[in-house]
């Protein structure tokens, strides 16, 4: 009786980490190349952008909200950075700052729609998602942006992606092996540590968790609930735009068709994160592990020659299993009721 109880407890806490370890071992046995440093870095690189987006959406989940606009914010940042450099001829720093400001502004508008206009969070950010998906295509009349493209007003674009900007997505640091670690992976790790520290170690993170758990109680404790909710969406928008910048730097062009999967992957990572260490609530560490889990799974399947079109199905299945871990097994349904 007592032993069963402990086993369940153990499964809830470590089940997902063990499952991930099992995957790594399984893939390594089937395909020894899986365990190489390059393969490991490739996994990290493949999840860097969705991981950053997922950390942003985690902030909104913590306050009991949800940001569906992150994918559209990222692709908007992708188009805006390309537009800024190729058509307005701006430098890398200006382009990056412009995109981050755009992301923060979208987050601010999302937040104000939710706290001032009382639009439910899912609907407000869904509306913002559609708005941005349309808006980002207007300036170029629906075309992708690259050097030498013909402009709607006549003439051709003469600007180029600056080298400094492209480095953000392509530069690799020497670490043990030459040219091993891409800059984007460093960004992911630094942002993950920052978001984790903010949510777990500071009073602001504490307050945001209190709001997500019982907003009424937080408000009656003298906390500026609306301010913190807006802040969560600003964080989410800013991180999403940074993800878009990295994507633009990797692609080297303003591609209208890229970034379709960003929302699904990021949300999946954040929700899988609920199950890590039995947290049963949004948390930065879990989100990072969730992103890594999806990356390992897809990399392994790719190396085993699984067809690409099975990927979304597998991601969805993993997400469902993770949610069962969180809500059914742990029996802590604090978040399940909302």
């Amino acid at each position: 009786m007592k032993k069963d109880f402990n086993l369940t407890d153990f499964a809830i806490r470590y089940g997902f980490l063990l499952l991930m370890l099992g995957l790594v071992i399984g893939f390594s046995v089937a395909q020894p190349a899986f365990l190489s440093a390059r393969s490991g870095v490739f996994i990290l690189q493949s999840v860097a952008i969705t991981g950053i987006l997922a950390l942003g959406v985690t902030a909104t989940l913590v306050v009991g909200g949800f940001d569906l606009s992150i994918g559209a914010v990222a692709t908007s940042a992708l188009m805006l950075s390309a537009y800024a450099m190729v058509i307005w001829d701006l430098g890398a720093v200006e382009a990056v700052l412009l995109c981050l400001a755009m992301g923060a502004l979208v987050g601010l508008i999302n937040g104000l729609l939710i706290v001032k206009m009382k639009v439910p969070d899912l609907l407000a950010t869904l509306g913002m998602m559609f708005l941005l998906m349309g808006l980002q295509r207007i300036p170029t009349e629906g075309n992708s942006i690259s050097t030498g493209m013909s402009l709607p007003g006549g003439g051709t674009a003469t600007g180029t992606f600056s080298e400094g900007f492209l480095m953000l997505g392509r530069y690799r640091l020497d670490f043990i092996l030459e040219d091993l670690v891409p800059l984007s992976v460093v960004f992911l790790i630094v942002i993950a540590l920052l978001v984790w520290g903010f949510l777990e170690l500071t009073r602001h993170g504490r307050v945001m968790y209190a709001i997500g758990s019982n907003a009424k109680a937080a408000s009656l404790a003298g906390i500026n609930v609306n301010g913190y909710r807006v802040l969560a969406y600003v964080i989410s928008g800013t991180l999403a735009s940074f993800g878009g910048i990295l994507l633009a730097a990797r692609l080297g062009r303003g591609d209208v068709a890229s970034g379709n999967n960003l929302l699904l992957d990021a949300v999946a990572a954040a929700l899988i994160g609920f199950a890590v260490l039995g947290a049963a609530k949004p948390n930065a560490f879990g989100t990072a592990i969730g992103a890594l889990f999806v990356g390992i799974l897809l990399q392994g399947l790719t190396m085993l020659n699984a067809p690409y079109y099975t990927q979304d199905f597998i991601k969805g299945a993993v997400l469902v299993v993770a949610l069962v871990f969180t809500f059914a097994l742990s029996g802590r349904n604090g978040r399940g009721r909302t």
Binding site: R206, Y209, S213, N214, A217, A221, K281, R335
Partner: peptide, 18 residues
């Protein structure tokens, strides 16, 4: 109006005076 269900009792006590 008062209890934060996800928090332990320490965090419930210190909430207004973080």
């Amino acid at each position: 109006n008062s209890v934060v269900p996800d928090f332990d009792l320490t965090r419930n006590m210190t909430l207004p005076f973080l």
